[in-house]
Simulated assay, not measured.
Amino acid sequence: MGKFSNDIRELLEGIGGKENIVTVSHCATRLRFVLADPKKADIEKIEKIKSVKGSFTQAGQFQIIIGNEVSVFYNELIKETGLKESSKDEAKKAGRQNMNLLQRLISHLAEIFAPIIPAIVVGGLILGFRNVIGDIAFYEDGTKTLTDVSQFWAGVHHFLWLIGEAIFFFLPVGITWSIAKKWGQHKFWVLS
């Protein structure tokens, strides 16, 4: 008998039984369930379980917060129920069945744009820094900018334009790459 056997039994009763579980996975602190009928989940009953810290529904997944011992809880759950282990990506795909059309569309767009957000943020920061050194008059009683008084910073100002704009210039390439990666087509980009 495992450490969480009683809690697992209570959890299974609370979510409508083992047969209501389409798939289950976990992340650092949460169990991620995709339920065949989410309405069967008794949230009040689940949140009264000793090891459960809270629950919520997001992206078609019923998520239960367990905390740092989630991997132990998950392994015992798999062992006691005989469910198949699944990854977060498999759970995401299965969770889409519980979303309406608009939610599925937004989910797909989020998966496409999430990998390129760091590049967009960096491009914006670079252009913002460029504007500070090139457009805000700090010197000679507010009449000259840093680039007006320093040849070095004028060169940096011009160079940052190249880097900052390149990120946005190649944004369509980044979006295309992200779409191809999402659809699993990145293996076919090599020309024969």
Rank of each mutant, 00 (worst) to 15 (best):
M1V: 10
M1Q: 08
K3G: 06
D7H: 06
R9N: 15
E10D: 10
L11P: 05
L11F: 12
E13S: 13
G14K: 02
I15K: 00
G16C: 07
I21Q: 02
T23I: 11
S25T: 15
S25A: 15
H26C: 14
H26D: 10
A28S: 12
R30C: 01
L31R: 02
R32L: 13
F33S: 01
A36R: 14
A36H: 14
K39E: 15
D42F: 07
I43T: 12
I46M: 08
K50T: 14
K50H: 12
V52D: 05
S55M: 05
S55Y: 00
S55C: 03
F56M: 05
F56P: 01
A59Y: 00
I64R: 01
I65L: 11
I65C: 01
V70T: 02
V70Y: 03
V70F: 11
S71L: 15
V72M: 13
N75R: 02
E76C: 11
E76I: 04
L77H: 02
I78D: 02
K79Y: 08
K79T: 11
G82Y: 08
G82M: 02
G82V: 04
L83C: 01
S86K: 04
S86C: 04
S87F: 11
E90N: 11
K92M: 09
K93E: 13
A94R: 08
L101F: 12
L101Y: 13
L102D: 06
L102R: 10
Q103C: 07
L105H: 14
H108C: 09
L109V: 13
L109E: 11
I112E: 09
A114Q: 08
P115A: 15
I116S: 13
P118Y: 06
A119D: 04
G123T: 01
L127N: 03
L127H: 01
G128Y: 00
V132D: 02
V132F: 03
I133E: 00
G134V: 01
A137W: 00
A137M: 08
F138P: 01
F138V: 06
E140G: 10
E140P: 07
G142D: 07
T145K: 00
T145E: 03
L146E: 13
D148E: 15
F152W: 15
W153D: 03
V156S: 00
V156H: 01
H157L: 06
F159T: 07
F159N: 07
W161S: 08
W161Q: 06
I163V: 13
I163Q: 05
E165Y: 09
F170C: 12
L171W: 03
P172T: 11
P172F: 09
V173I: 14
V173N: 15
G174I: 10
I175E: 05
T176D: 14
W177F: 11
W177I: 10
S178I: 09
I179M: 11
A180W: 01
W183T: 05
G184Y: 02
Q185S: 05
H186S: 08
H186T: 14
F188H: 13
